[in-house]
Design a protein around this nucleic acid. Structure first.
Length: 712
DNA sequence: GATCATTACATTTTT
DNA sequence: TGTAATGATC
């Protein structure tokens, strides 16, 4: 076997060879971090004689896990066992399926997604008679999730609640956890939190996994939240062989509980940690790196890295100002066609990145009109379409009749005469008898005050589910799904409608069947529960594979970890990107800036930035001003294609003031030259305190002032 | 109880 | 813009 280390640069090699003890790899964008991770695993196995069984590598998306697994296998001799490479969530799910009976759940537990969480919370709030207007269920859900991500249980949350809102959340939280338990269900955050609980309550189980996973590798460490941090800490506490890879400049999931401090404080947590910086970039031109660097250096609290590349020079970054979003889409297509002709690019070379999924619509229309092939990643997620969720809910009820959220979802879909009144009576009966809803339905004859026809309807439904449950043990998974679509009446309902929409829904169900067949082929023993687990832990990017024949459209979040020869970032306007711009949340602005950094560093050869003067939001036209981030790119790196007339001052006064900060020199129309002493806020709220020689300190709102920039 | 029509409402990113 | 919640009518 060839020497693995020969393929690596000195810093990469250092990271691979340091196999014992904690290791922090600060890997800049495009510095070959996946390479280091895969080589490290291969090195442990091939050179250090570590059994693959003893290695755990965790990532955040299934796609990343799959890629890493494949690349490791390519490095190893054939027939070597594969190490455990998976997402943190699916790793936890696997561990819990083995041990959770110790904590009052069954190994068949259902996994709740955000939709399920929300519908359960809504129902609870109705039962508890909490006004939905004052306490939006989505807010309550977010607060509960935040608590779980920080390992704060419902009791503790209740004890520490400070204000009325928190007390309300605490009450919902408590009932919510009780319900999940009786439904035999866990939500996403529970997967982590319960595993940590398991480890803490049963040291011998923790000991088992510490023994098993003697070498732990973590990808995208900057995106871990506190619960995940604890989880890793517990697993690594016996041997300290914890290798984390991350980039604090690419931390973009703070809103989901990710805590950059996990990476910033790694050396505090593990004083003996070795730190390796990967600063050589193999992806982008110097032009691109320089622009990205100038942007991200405006953030505070960074580890600080200096990326370098051998790809000197490079094309300037093109900045296109447009009248509205349609014009923006058109000019993007124009650039694509131009580059295909002049630089012999293929469709697959291009990626269009945007901040919000809603932006894809106009782009899509324009691509269709011009008949240019494209693929959209994410957006309307397949598994979140109504008909798909309905059938999945049936399958969940078949797998776990205790799952009341799914049961209530499908109880009358398609309509079978079990209306609100009937449901309420059965629910009340179930509560009185302290039995699960499905049992109450089985005993519907005991429920008082129910007309015969309604009772019959319930009995019919119970029979349907019971039959499918029996079948599920005898027939193959794809057959079961087919049968579910047919017997529940879903198919005939759609066929009867005969509309174009119903046809589309039918096609989606066909797609669902395909995904089940595919799953059955991939897995030796395809169980219903395993399929449901895979589906609920899928991510948007998981289904995407690069293609040379189509332009890729996706959000900036989904683009993390990918690279493209040519990258468009569109919608660079205040209020869209950065999306929020409240003065008080510097942290949020910094996260947006990191997101911009992530976008820029996806590009190998070219970056094209666009913004629109007017953009239609949900209704009406909104005038927008260019993003403050544009002003952070040194003008000499930009090739501006901005109309210079009819723009009320042109692009210069449009956005350059937004890059002003302490020390910048400006010229004011009446006070002359001055030095910026202090800048507050940004975008259109940017306030400057400027010292003009011969005058007193002046406070100016940059938006209104007629300023000329002398130097930044 | 089902169906259709109207109105309200929300938009950031997602494991 | 599209969907979810609500209300009126059969």
């Amino acid at each position: 076997m060839k020497n693995l280390l020969d393929d690596l640069n000195p810093a990469q090699r250092e990271a691979v060879e340091h196999t014992e003890g904690p290791l922090l790899i600060l890997a800049g964008a495009g510095s070959g971090k996946t390479r280091v991770l895969t080589y490290r695993v291969a090195y442990l196995i091939a050179h250090k004689g570590v059994s693959p069984m003893n290695i755990l590598a965790v990532t955040f998306t299934n796609k990343a896990a799959k890629e890493m697994g494949e690349r490791i296998n390519q490095l190893l001799p054939q027939r070597t066992a594969s190490p455990w490479v998976a997402t943190i969530h699916s790793t936890c799910a696997k561990i819990l399926r083995r041990h959770i009976d110790l904590m009052g759940f069954t190994p068949r537990f259902t996994i709740y997604d955000e939709d399920d969480q929300l519908s359960l919370i809504k129902r609870l709030m109705e039962e508890l008679e909490l006004p939905k207007l004052r306490f939006p269920p989505a807010l309550v859900r977010a607060k509960i999730e935040w608590a779980k991500n920080n390992l704060i249980g419902d009791e503790e949350y209740g004890r520490d609640s400070r204000d009325y809102l928190e007390r309300v959340v605490a009450e919902v939280y408590e009932h919510y956890q009780q319900r999940l338990r009786s439904y035999d269900a866990l939500d996403f955050s529970d997967l982590i939190m319960k595993t940590v609980e398991l480890f803490s309550a049963f040291p011998h189980i923790l000991g088992h996994y510490q023994q098993r996973f003697r070498y732990i590798l973590v990808d995208e460490y900057q995106d871990t939240n506190y619960a995940q941090y604890r989880w890793l800490n517990l697993l690594a506490s016996a041997h300290h062989n914890l290798c984390v890879v991350g980039d604090d400049d690419q931390s973009i999931y703070g809103w989901r509980g990710a805590d950059v401090r996990n990476i910033l404080d790694f050396e505090k947590d593990y004083p003996k940690a070795k730190v390796v910086k990967l600063e050589r970039n193999y992806r982008s031109t110097q032009m691109i790196l320089q622009a990205a660097g100038s942007v991200v250096k405006n953030n505070f609290g960074r580890k600080g890295k200096q990326l370098w590349t051998e790809r000197e020079g490079g094309e300037k970054i093109i900045l296109i100002g447009c009248g509205d979003e349609r014009e923006e889409a058109a000019s993007i297509l124009q650039v694509i066609e131009d580059l295909m002709r002049r630089e012999r690019r293929r469709y697959g070379d291009f990626a269009i990145l945007y901040r919000t999924n809603a932006q894809s619509r106009i782009l899509e229309e324009e691509f269709k009109r011009e008949a240019i092939p494209y693929t959209i990643v994410g957006g309307l997620r397949f598994y979140e379409r109504r008909e798909v969720k309905d059938i999945l809910a049936y399958l969940r009820v078949i797998a776990n009749p205790l799952d009341e959220t799914s049961l209530l979802r499908v109880i009358n879909v398609p309509p079978r005469g079990i209306g609100e009144g009937t449901r309420a009576k059965i629910v009340r009966y179930a509560q009185e008898q302290s039995i699960p809803l499905f049992e109450a339905m089985q005993r519907v004859a005991e429920v008082e005050g129910l007309q015969t026809s309604y009772r019959r309807a319930v009995e019919g439904f119970v029979r349907l589910i019971t039959q499918l449950q029996v079948e599920s043990r005898n027939i193959s998974l794809p057959k079961l799904v087919e049968m579910t679509i047919a017997r529940t009446g879903y198919r005939s309902l759609l066929e009867a409608q005969g509309t174009l929409e119903a046809q589309g829904r039918m096609e989606n169900l066909g797609e669902l069947l395909n995904s089940v067949r595919d799953f059955a082929e991939r897995n030796p023993q395809p169980s219903l529960q395993a399929y449901l687990e895979e589906v609920s832990l899928l991510t948007e990017i998981d289904g995407w594979e690069g293609t040379s024949q189509a332009v890729t459209l996706m959000t900036l979040h989904n683009a993390k970890g990918l690279e493209f020869p040519v990258v468009f970032i569109c919608g660079l306007e205040e209020g869209l990107f950065p999306v929020t711009h409240s003065l008080d949340s510097l942290e949020k602005l910094e996260e947006e800036r990191r997101l911009f950094y992530v976008g820029l560093t996806r590009a190998k050869d070219r970056v094209i930035l666009t913004y629109a003067k007017r953009r239609r939001k949900f209704e009406g036209n909104y005038r927008s001003i260019p993003s403050c981030f544009l002003g952070e790119i040194p003008p000499e790196l930009l090739e501006k294609r901005v109309p210079d007339s009819g723009w009320g001052g042109g692009w210069k006064s449009e956005f350059t003031p937004f890059g002003l900060k302490k020390g910048s020199v400006i010229r004011h129309s009446s006070w002359g030259e001055g030095v910026v002493m202090k800048s507050e806020g940004s975008g259109e709220n940017l306030k400057l305190t400027v010292m003009f020689p011969g005058h007193s300190l002046k406070k100016i709102l940059a938006k209104y002032a007629d300023l000329e920039i002398i130097s930044y």
